[in-house]
Amino acid sequence: MLSYLIRRVAWLIGSLFVAGSAVFFLLRVLPGDPAVTLLAVGSSPDQIDAIRHQLGTDRPVLAQYGHWLGDLVTGNLGDSLFTQMPVLDQIAGRLPVTVPLALSAFVLSIVVAVPIGVFAAVRRRGLLGVAVSTLAQLGIALPIFWIGIVVVWLVAVQWRALPPGGFPRTGWQDPAAAVQSLVLPVATLTIAQGSVLVRYVRSATLDVLSQEYVRTARSLGYSLPRALWRHGPRNGAATVVQILGILLASSLLGTVVIESVFALPGLGSLLLTSVKARDLPIVQGTVFLMTATVLVVGLVVDIVQRLVDPRLGART
């Protein structure tokens, strides 16, 4: 296990390095001068030089690359081109919106979708089972922002039950208002992620149900639900952990769109406005952090999988 852990962490560091390099080269080395694309047509050469200097693009590419990697290692992501504030501070300022949003949608979709998925598998021939999987299929097919718009229209416009978007200026100082403004975004993200999860859990359950040990349990007098309860969790766990990893990553990414639907000042909207304003340091910093999070989640998933299924370890 320990040697696996070491290998896996080394792999993670390698991936982070590659991801960091990819971000850098995509932004700097592809044809085109960022400083030129950044400014409006007709800017004076002085302005261009100033931006070049700020971006560091007046230095040789390799020096820039080394600088970027060095900054990454020391946790320095540079300053915004426009506000001049450190990128890391700006990102940190957005987390109080994005983290609660992503995490509660993640947790909620597990709580809702796992039982539904199991049900859809056990009753896959029944009317209700078919209906549930059809709905889930639909939830996957509909774009998340469409779900969001419909939710807003229904709850905020028709019933006037909750605000259609925005976040209190004072942040979490008024917890009730903050929670209120997160209800619809979380619900939307939960519907979208939950639909995906229902499908995954359903097929993982079907997989367990088709195993011979379930037949053995039944031959010993267990009912189908009890047999499933006896064998399902431990045998489905490895698959489910993997799915949860994917889900956590996609919850994080989902916030980019969700925050745009609900006008929430989170990490996603920081990224979006920076992309539109071409604030290079913020874009590369945020993208790198998000990718790094996805990679770290992948690491955790792999390790937890080893823990729940000792056979995986036995094979290597």
Binding site: Q211, E212, Y213, R215, T216, A217, R218, S219, L220, G221, Y222, S223, R230, H231, R234, N235, V308, D309, P310, R311
Partner: peptide
């Protein structure tokens, strides 16, 4: 059926590896 399975009539299958839960 559940009242008799395992208690009055039992069965042993051909393939013991797949008939047992690999993780229990």
């Amino acid at each position: 059926w559940r009242r008799v399975r395992g208690r009055t009539v039992s069965i042993v299958f051909q393939e013991p590896l797949t008939a047992l839960d690999p993780l229990m």
